[in-house]
């Protein structure tokens, strides 16, 4: 079937993954709002499964199979995948690349998939939301969709490791000097502030094995963000978001600090600039109260 035929909208298959529907639905809500406005049509993905990353530590091969199975679903639909979680995106990209390159590996994985009537062919691409915005939508188009530029706002980013790492496998942006999210933030009119150790990991993946270290890491980053004078932090990963937003009050209690730094999913920030209301973007779903930011935005809007 060809979904692209009947409109000038580009269709992408939406890979939700596990964490987004589990706990971070405001990311999904805002993404859907924003992409629709940018002429990206999202197609649902029945039968999908976990990307495989959580079980990579147990069984690398099973990870490959889970990822490959998702890729075959997209191939069947003839659509490229857009992925919200960088962990999933990295995994799908990496496996897609590996299987396309290595005939031996492809044959091996296909010999398993055959049991369930599937075969990896290597006909589609998988991209993280950021990559889609930069490469397929384009900054120009986004800029023209910005109705209420967020000129009064100063924000920082925490991009999350897997958007860019490991470099060779993911092939997007430069982790040591990332620019994608910076450009996307600047397009909204907000002022971008840099901070120390920006591309360091938040530690989320080891929560459950050891909770303390991730909290310490996140605390350190929050301190740097605060010192840099950012009014909000922007993320594009459900796990990072949980670390910075959901866990922020806990970190404040534990380390006796006050941050009160709202943490927005990037599509929420962009959504605000496009003129969506905070209800439409589900800003109340955030743990750290974003009111100060919303009021800034509306102040400006009134000012006009």
């Amino acid at each position: 079937m060809d979904v692209n035929k009947d409109s000038n909208q580009k269709a992408w298959l939406l890979f939700l993954g596990c964490a987004v529907p589990y706990r971070v639905s405001s990311y999904e809500i805002s993404t859907r709002k924003v992409l629709a406005e940018l002429d990206i049509k999202l197609v649902e993905m029945p039968e999908y499964n976990c990307c495989g990353l959580p079980i990579d530590p147990i069984d690398h091969e099973m990870m490959l199979i889970l990822a490959a199975r998702n890729l075959t679903l997209a191939e069947e639909k003839g659509l490229n995948l857009v992925v919200l979680c960088p962990g999933c995106a990295g995994t799908l990209r990496k496996v897609n690349k590996k299987l396309k390159e290595s005939k031996m590996l492809r044959e091996k994985i296909n010999s398993y998939l055959k049991e369930t009537g599937r075969e990896f062919k290597g006909t589609i691409e998988a991209k993280h939301l950021l990559q889609l915005l930069i490469e397929d939508v384009g900054l120009e188009k986004i800029r023209s969709a910005v109705k209420k530029p967020l000129f009064n706002l100063q924000v920082s980013e925490h991009m999350g490791c897997h958007v860019t790492r490991p470099t060779g496998a993911v092939d997007f942006d430069n982790p040591e000097n990332p620019e994608a999210l910076k450009k996307l933030i600047e397009v909204t009119g907000a002022k971008y502030v840099d901070y120390i150790d920006k591309s360091a990991c938040c530690g989320a993946p080891i929560a459950g094995v050891n909770d303390k270290i991730p909290l310490q890491l996140t605390k350190e980053k929050l301190i740097h963000v605060k010192d840099a004078g950012a009014q909000a932090l922007i993320t594009v990963c459900p796990f990072c978001h949980m670390m910075f937003d959901t866990n922020q009050p806990r970190i404040e209690r534990m380390f006796n600090e006050t941050f009160k730094i709202p943490v927005l999913h990037y599509p929420q920030l962009l959504g605000l600039a496009m003129g969506f209301s905070s209800e439409e973007l589900n800003l109340k779903g955030l743990r750290v109260d974003p009111t100060p930011i919303i009021s800034q935005v509306s102040d400006r809007a009134e000012g006009k």
Binding site: S25, E44, E47, D59, I65, R69
Partner: peptide
Amino acid sequence: REQTGLPPLPKRNPKALEKLAKETGF
């Protein structure tokens, strides 16, 4: 989910996964 206006979460196919998991020894 549905109250917030999101479409229902797509169905999954655990049977297929179990089959694969058996096959690989996972």
